[in-house]
Computed example of a mutant assay.
Amino acid sequence: MPSSQSAEEEEPQKKRAPWGVIALVLLTGLALIRNGSGEFAVGPPQPASAAAADSRVHGQTRDTGPAPLPFSLADRVKIPAIQVDAPIQPVGLDAEGWVDAPPAEDPNLAGWFTGAVSPGEKGTAVVVGHVDNNAGPAVFYGLGSLKKGNRVEVKRKDGRTAVFEIYGIEVVDKNNFPGNKVYSSNGKPELRVITCGGGFTKENGYDGNVVAFARMVKTV
């Protein structure tokens, strides 16, 4: 794996894969967080229907807002409302075309998908993480309890922090993953935070993904 410095130097020259292609891969790929055990007495919280992204504002272009940041590796994610404070490691696609997940044995670790923009750049960044593992709840166990207006802070390796505000959170069908809806970009810096959710069976694991939709509201 290249050092952070070489990655910083090389990444801006990489050609980003078009979301139309990535979304197809992720229709099954986001079952990456497929190790979620779901075998606890109380399952992870699920989003309320009222928290779904409003179609009237989803993807809406705003004339105002902070200017996009340049590329920088993601370093840490904080979601104060659910007490998340976790390091981020880069993740890509594995040999089978799945989005690679952070190691399941580390419950407090998130992954930034390198096939998308970095958090704070123009476009839609993607951060993923496990909902649970064999030992219990993991980093994004509480994601489904978030509400519109909650903040997600992503600290970057360049020392800047991109602050995002959630405008929708919902469960989507893993087998019919709505890639265009989840990954669409309006040319502004946005973020999706994704984990497993929905129903669970031992045979197939979770049947959905919890997706938090957020837009950047400031940088610090």
Rank of each mutant, 00 (worst) to 15 (best):
G97W: 04
A81M: 05
W98M: 14
A101I: 00
Y141K: 13
F71G: 00
G92R: 07
A125Y: 06
A135D: 13
A125V: 00
H130I: 02
T114W: 09
P80L: 08
D132K: 11
D100G: 11
V128P: 04
L73D: 10
G115N: 14
G115D: 13
D100P: 04
P103H: 10
Q83T: 12
N133K: 12
Q83M: 11
A104C: 02
G129N: 03
P90Y: 03
W112H: 15
F71M: 10
I88L: 07
G92D: 08
I79G: 06
D94N: 15
V84C: 00
G142R: 05
W112L: 06
D94E: 09
P107F: 09
V117A: 02
D75W: 06
A125E: 01
T124D: 03
A95F: 11
A74S: 14
V77W: 07
S118Q: 09
A135G: 04
L143F: 09
A95M: 11
D106T: 14
V127P: 06
W112V: 07
N108G: 07
V117T: 02
A135S: 13
P90R: 06
V117C: 01
D85S: 13
N134E: 12
A110K: 03
F140K: 08
S72I: 10
K122R: 15
P103L: 07
S118E: 11
A86H: 01
G111D: 05
A81I: 04
I79M: 07
T114R: 15
F113C: 13
L109K: 14
G144S: 02
A125G: 01
A135E: 11
E121K: 04
S145I: 02
D106E: 13
E105W: 12
P107E: 07
L73E: 12
F140D: 03
E121Y: 01
V84R: 03
I88W: 01
P137R: 07
W98S: 09
V99C: 15
E96R: 14
N108H: 11
D85R: 03
Q83N: 14
D75Q: 15
V99N: 08
G123V: 10
P119Q: 11
Q83R: 14
I88K: 01
P137N: 00
E96N: 14
L109F: 07
G97Y: 03
P68Y: 03
P103Y: 09
L93S: 13
A101T: 10
P87T: 10
H130A: 00
V117W: 01
G136M: 03
L69K: 11
L93I: 14
A81H: 03
P70R: 05
I79H: 02
V131Q: 08
P80T: 10
P68G: 10
V128C: 04
A125M: 01
G136W: 06
P137C: 02
Q89T: 15
P90E: 00
E121P: 02
S118L: 08
R76D: 08
F140E: 01
E121Q: 14
Q83A: 15
G123D: 05
D106F: 08
G123S: 07
G120L: 04
V84T: 00
P107N: 10
D106M: 11
